[in-house]
Computed example of a mutant assay.
Amino acid sequence: MRGYRQLKNLKRRVVVITGASSGLGEQFAYQAAREGAIVVGCARRQDKLDQVARQCQHLSGQPAYGLAVDMTDPAQIQAVIAQVEREIGPIAVLINNAGFGLMEDFLTFDMATAEKMMRVNVLGLMYATQEVALKMAERQCGAIINVASMAGKMATPKSTVYSATKFAVLGFSNALRLELKPLGISVLTVNPGPIATNFFNIADKSGQYLAKLGKIVLQPEDVAAKVLATVGTSRREVNLPGIMEVGARLYSLFPGLGDVLAGGLFNKK
Rank of each mutant, 00 (worst) to 15 (best):
I185C: 01
L183R: 14
I195E: 15
R249I: 11
I144V: 08
G214T: 02
A143R: 10
G232N: 02
A143S: 11
T156P: 08
A196E: 11
R236F: 11
V238M: 13
A211R: 04
I185A: 05
I144C: 14
A175S: 04
V227K: 07
N191L: 09
F254D: 12
A203Q: 03
L134V: 07
A143H: 15
Y162Q: 04
L228Q: 10
S234E: 12
S234V: 12
A203V: 03
A229I: 10
N174E: 14
S163K: 07
A248H: 01
V187M: 06
L261V: 00
I195G: 06
M244C: 13
I195C: 12
L265Q: 08
Q219S: 03
A248V: 02
G247N: 07
P220A: 01
N201L: 15
R139Q: 03
K212R: 09
V231Y: 12
F199Q: 07
A262S: 09
P255D: 09
L265E: 06
T156S: 12
A143E: 10
N198R: 14
I144Q: 10
A151C: 15
P192F: 07
V161C: 15
K205N: 01
R139I: 02
A211Y: 00
N201G: 12
Y162I: 04
V147N: 05
L134S: 02
L180D: 02
L213E: 01
A164W: 04
D222V: 08
L213N: 01
G242P: 13
A229L: 11
Y209M: 05
K205A: 00
A224F: 06
R235V: 14
K135S: 05
L178Q: 07
A248F: 02
S186A: 11
V223L: 00
S173E: 01
R249S: 15
P220M: 00
V169M: 04
A203F: 00
Y209S: 03
R249Q: 15
K226F: 02
S206T: 12
S186Y: 02
G232L: 07
A168Q: 03
V238W: 03
G152P: 13
G142P: 04
K166R: 07
M150E: 04
P194T: 10
L134P: 00
L176C: 06
V231K: 14
V217P: 11
K166T: 01
R235P: 10
L176F: 03
L240T: 06
N201H: 12
T189D: 09
G264K: 07
T197W: 06
F254T: 15
T165R: 02
L218R: 03
P220Y: 00
G193F: 06
T233G: 01
N198Q: 13
A137N: 10
T197I: 09
I243T: 13
V169T: 09
N191T: 04
S234I: 11
V161P: 08
Q140R: 15
Y251N: 15
S173N: 01
D222C: 04
